[in-house]
C-alpha cells in the first residue's frame, strides 16, 4: 500500500514537472512579446535584437501607438472593434436562423441544401478573393468602404457554418416543440420564446468565435482595403510593420501593438471560456 502511495507521489511529481515545462514553453513567446514592447525606443532603437530583457524599460512604443499624428493605429483598432462587433452580432443571428430551420423544420430541399453547402465548403476560401473584391467594388465597399464590405462578406457566407449550433438544437427534445404547438404556438413563437432562451451557451459560443476571427483577418482585409490606410484593421496595418522594409525599427512597436490587441481578446476569451469549451466539445462530437 505504501509503495502504491510513493508511486503515486512520484507520478504526481513527474506530472508537475512536465506541466511546469509546458507552461514555460507556452508562456515564453508571450513574455518575450511583452518585454520587447517595453524596450526603450530612444536608446535601443526599435529593430530586432538577440536578447530578451531590454536594457532600458520605457513606454515609448505605447506612446507612439497612441499618437495619431504618427500612426493610424487607434483608427485600425477602432475599425477592428467595429468589424468584430457587427460580425459577431449578425453572424450569430444568421446562424441561429439557419440552425433552427435545419434542425426543427422538414421541408423540400433541406437535405439538398445541407449537402450543397457541405460541398461548397470544400472550396478554398482564397480562391474567390479577386471575385469578391470586384463584387464588393460594385457596391462601393472597397478601399474607403472596406469596413462595411468586410462585415458583409463575413456575414453573408456565415450560414454555412451552422454545424455546431444545429448540433446543439438537435439535443433540445422535439417533444417540447410539439407540446407548444398543441397549445397553439406558432413556429416563430417557439423559436423566439423557447429555443433562443434555452440556447444561451451556444449563442455565446457563436458570438465569441465570430468576434475573435476579425482580429486575425489579414488576407482578405488587406486585399479589400489596399491603398487606404484609414480602413485597415490591426492585422493589416501591423503586419506591414514586420513584412515591409519601409518600416525600419518598428519591431518593438509591433510588439506593443500586439500586446494591446491581445489583452481585450484574451480577457474576453478567459471570461467566456466555459461556453467555448461547451461549444467545441459539442461540435467535435457532432462533427
Amino acid at each position: 500500500m505504501k509503495s502504491y502511495k510513493t508511486k503515486r507521489a512520484i507520478g504526481n511529481a513527474v506530472g508537475y514537472i512536465i506541466l511546469i515545462l509546458i507552461s514555460i514553453i507556452w508562456l515564453f513567446p508571450f513574455v518575450g512579446l511583452v518585454l520587447q514592447s517595453f524596450r526603450s525606443y530612444a536608446t535601443e532603437y526599435g529593430g530586432m535584437v538577440d536578447y530578451l530583457v531590454p536594457k532600458q524599460f520605457s513606454l515609448d512604443n505605447y506612446k507612439f501607438l497612441f499618437d495619431s499624428s504618427q500612426t493610424n493605429y487607434l483608427m485600425w483598432y477602432k475599425n477592428t472593434i467595429i468589424i468584430a462587433v457587427f460580425v459577431s452580432l449578425l453572424q450569430t443571428i444568421i446562424q441561429l436562423c439557419v440552425s433552427y430551420s435545419l434542425s426543427r423544420m422538414r421541408f423540400a430541399g433541406r437535405t439538398f441544401l445541407m449537402r450543397f453547402w457541405l460541398i461548397l465548403g470544400m472550396f478554398p476560401g482564397f480562391l474567390t478573393m479577386i471575385c469578391l473584391y470586384f463584387l464588393l467594388k460594385q457596391f462601393g465597399l472597397t478601399q474607403a468602404g472596406a469596413i462595411p464590405g468586410l462585415i458583409l462578406v463575413s456575414v453573408a457566407s456565415s450560414g454555412m457554418g451552422y454545424y455546431v449550433c444545429k448540433g446543439y438544437f438537435d439535443t433540445i427534445p422535439k417533444a417540447l416543440d410539439e407540446a407548444a404547438m398543441i397549445d397553439g404556438a406558432t413556429r416563430s413563437r417557439i423559436f423566439f420564446t423557447m429555443i433562443i432562451p434555452m440556447s444561451k451557451p451556444i449563442i455565446i459560443y457563436t458570438a465569441l468565435v465570430a468576434f475573435m476571427a476579425p482580429w486575425c483577418d489579414y488576407v482578405f482585409a488587406s486585399y479589400v482595403a489596399f491603398g487606404h490606410d484609414t480602413s485597415y484593421n490591426v492585422a493589416v496595418g501591423m503586419t506591414r510593420w514586420v513584412w515591409t522594409n519601409d518600416y525600419q525599427g518598428y519591431f518593438t512597436r509591433f510588439c506593443a501593438g500586439g500586446v494591446l490587441v491581445a489583452i481585450p481578446v484574451t480577457l474576453l476569451f478567459m471570461f467566456l471560456q466555459k461556453y467555448y469549451v461547451e461549444g467545441v466539445t459539442g461540435g467535435a462530437v457532432k462533427g
Partner: peptide
Amino acid sequence: EAVGEGDAAGNMITDVEAG
C-alpha cells in the same frame, strides 16, 4: 496614402481603377 514602393505595383495591377 502610405503604400510602399514594393506594394504599389502589386496593388495597382490588382485593380488599376482603384489604384
